[in-house]
Design a protein around this nucleic acid. Sequence first.
DNA 1: TCCAAAAGTGGGATCGGTTCCATTTTTGAC
DNA 2: GTCAAAAATGGAACCGATCCCACTTTTGGA
Lengths: 335, 335
Amino acid sequence: MATVKDVAKLAGVGSGTVSRYISGTGSVSKKSAEKIARAVEQLNYRPNSMARSLSSRRSDLIGVWVPSLEGPYYHMMIRTIESALRLQGKHMILANAEDAQSNEDRLAHLDYLINRDCDGILISSSLQSEFELARYAEKFANLVVMNHHTEELAGRCFSIDHDLGGRLAARHLVELGHARVATITGRLSALDARQRHVAFLDEMVRLGHPVAPERIIEGAFSYAGGEQAVAALLASGTDYSAVFCGNDKVAMVLIAELHHRGISVPGDVSVIGYDDVEFTPYTAPALSTVHAPIEEMSQSACHQLLNLTYGLELPYQEHFEPSLSVRQSTGPSRA
Amino acid sequence: MATVKDVAKLAGVGSGTVSRYISGTGSVSKKSAEKIARAVEQLNYRPNSMARSLSSRRSDLIGVWVPSLEGPYYHMMIRTIESALRLQGKHMILANAEDAQSNEDRLAHLDYLINRDCDGILISSSLQSEFELARYAEKFANLVVMNHHTEELAGRCFSIDHDLGGRLAARHLVELGHARVATITGRLSALDARQRHVAFLDEMVRLGHPVAPERIIEGAFSYAGGEQAVAALLASGTDYSAVFCGNDKVAMVLIAELHHRGISVPGDVSVIGYDDVEFTPYTAPALSTVHAPIEEMSQSACHQLLNLTYGLELPYQEHFEPSLSVRQSTGPSRA
DNA sequence: TCCAAAAGTGGGATCGGTTCCATTTTTGAC
DNA sequence: GTCAAAAATGGAACCGATCCCACTTTTGGA
């Protein structure tokens, strides 16, 4: 493999000039540029990225930490981030912490990124206690967080207004005439799950239809967690004409189980989800859900991280509002 | 940040000894090891991965090229690969070619990986003409391919027996008594889509129920492609008691649309998918499908790549057999 | 106790870029 | 045509590891 020196020799210029030409920094005369271009062509020169990283002290690597890769949610995130990074010639390395058993494990996954000398790190964490994020933020300036908010990380937190999201769901159901409503939440230790849940309950109270405690099931944002929670709800014997599910995966599981039991959606029971992941138009019936702008948020977080890390000025926005995505899984209450 | 030299000085040993201690290669006396360990602790030393890569001429980076990141299929792949690589202390960088318009674009995505000096590359390509893979294989020894087979890459191709898969689907439907069967395929220029399709048709002939040409719709393996194909099938006016879909995404779209039109699955029409991606238990009804061992294949491909690249001896297997995963979307023909 | 083999050691050369700086060349206003 | 400012240049120093090699120390069998 040819090196800068080889190119410099063949082009009859100094190595500094070649470097400047290649990286596009500093100035190079037209004449030199042409000679170098020819030499590069002839030698089929390609800069060595490790040498470049070593001497420039930047790896062009961005680390992305996610708590799980089950289901479409984090995948939509990854997909968006990969694309935004590729546009800037940066590369993503990924740490999926779903096999982590303890906080220590989760930190080990973060170290897996840090040890690689990422220039910046993007974390999606909804567990408040998951990291001592503030401490990491001190040590690691180029850190940006999604689905989380702390004072220490002002300007580096990206989030969706789940308070509004929860209320939108409540209003939608009440507008359709549903008074007896059940809900399956995510793990309430997760910030985003709790926010939407609390807001949903509160809005139901405000609208005059408080949700009875026996109609509240704490589940988890996974297929397995959804199955358990759905089973618990159906076994509880309580009645309800609509169910708000904390995310779309759980809603999907619920619809499947209701179908299995011959309960019609939305005829007998309306189901509303949350997130609006890619499969929502294709459940049967198509899922009404609270649209969370996941991709926009991911892109913004990524942009801001690139700005901080490389001094770019890409557009971004810190807060996003969800909206209602009404499809066929919700309908008027029969009562 | 501390360097080997700092550690060496503090520990009172040579830099070579520190290097050997850190990397675990070569021998270091117990006494030195202890002194170095103390110094590492004290200085909070962490080796610089770029310097390491430059001098050892290995990046510990594995590039993964996928044609798309829509839907669960490639995500399951990514998830498996990330995990297998992390276990070996390697990192994955990703190139998603779904925005590529031309072959040139697709190659640019591959260059995006190669320019990063990946130690090895994993490609999932079902388009035969997509790359001149053989040429890349010459230039780039540590290359492994999924869903593809060429002579030049003997021992480096990983695949699922889609011929068998297609036949399993046919047999299942015929056993249930279906004689008028329709099928929605993927793009037939894709090897995997064609294989299962051809085998399916052939097996239907063998079983005495050839599929009439008007009951064959060429679609694509995406949600949008599925929607179009489903619309085409339903508009065609042909009748059928069962549909074989070339992948699960399309099957999901079909089920949703049938539900929308009040056509019962499997009462009026049986639907069988292909792949067995993660959502299949949760469609309504749960999707009968041909189980393709995607995760096993991905892990094997990854293992063999690691073997080739780093001289490891991880277990792997080149060919995989699909099996039937019968759920609720298929049932006996009424006729 | 002796000695060859094995284990352990220090430090310099090297990987292939970037960056700095002193120096030369070019530019353009007068 | 002159001259100061701006542009361009070459090459050495540097980034922080690994690896090699010549050398010293330890080991253990006779």
